[in-house]
């Protein structure tokens, strides 16, 4: 089954991002397809590569990147929500005249249409958030 996931909270403050990751991993183990993970609201903060958690803690951002790397999961950060919160890829940064970008590996920035498209195309959409 094709399952789409929406993540609405950033890492560490809320558990929702952890729950979403563990749900996605379990779905993959069971042979389902994760159609897309769409990051919205403060969820876009899951996509910053500048996160440096203490060594004895889980690395929420890297875990998502690994999911993209190992299973080809499409990780999409909402452009409008990301711009508000300072999450940028190199192209975005250039376009806005910023001298730095911070989008983590495996993530891409795109429009809200990607959420609605996922909702329409996937068999299920599960939201995680505050």
């Amino acid at each position: 089954m094709k399952i789409a996931i929406m993540v609405n909270t950033g890492p560490y403050t809320h558990q929702a991002s952890d729950t979403a990751y563990l749900f996605a991993s379990a779905a993959l183990r069971k042979g389902h397809e994760i159609y897309r993970v769409f990051f919205y609201h403060d969820g876009v903060n899951n996509g910053t590569r500048l996160t440096v958690p203490p060594q004895d803690d889980r690395h929420v951002v890297n875990r998502w990147s690994e999911l993209a790397d190992q299973h080809g999961v499409d990780l999409v950060v909402c452009v409008a929500a990301a711009q508000r919160r300072g999450i940028m890829d190199a192209d975005e940064a250039k376009r806005h005249g910023n001298n730095a970008d911070n989008l983590a590996s495996g993530f891409r920035i795109s429009g809200l249409g990607q959420l609605v498209e996922a909702a329409v195309q996937a068999d299920r959409l599960v939201s995680f958030g505050d």
């Binding site: 919205y40 609201h41 429009g111 249409g113 609605v116």
Partner: peptide, 28 residues
């Protein structure tokens, strides 16, 4: 598709960003 709004405006951004989804989603 149902968009369920359960939170007040301004105190959090959810209502505003929720409305943005509805407006973009209308194209579908």
């Amino acid at each position: 598709i149902a968009y369920v709004n359960r939170r007040a405006p301004h105190g959090t951004i959810y209502a505003l960003e929720g409305l943005e989804v509805v407006l973009i989603g209308a194209a579908f």
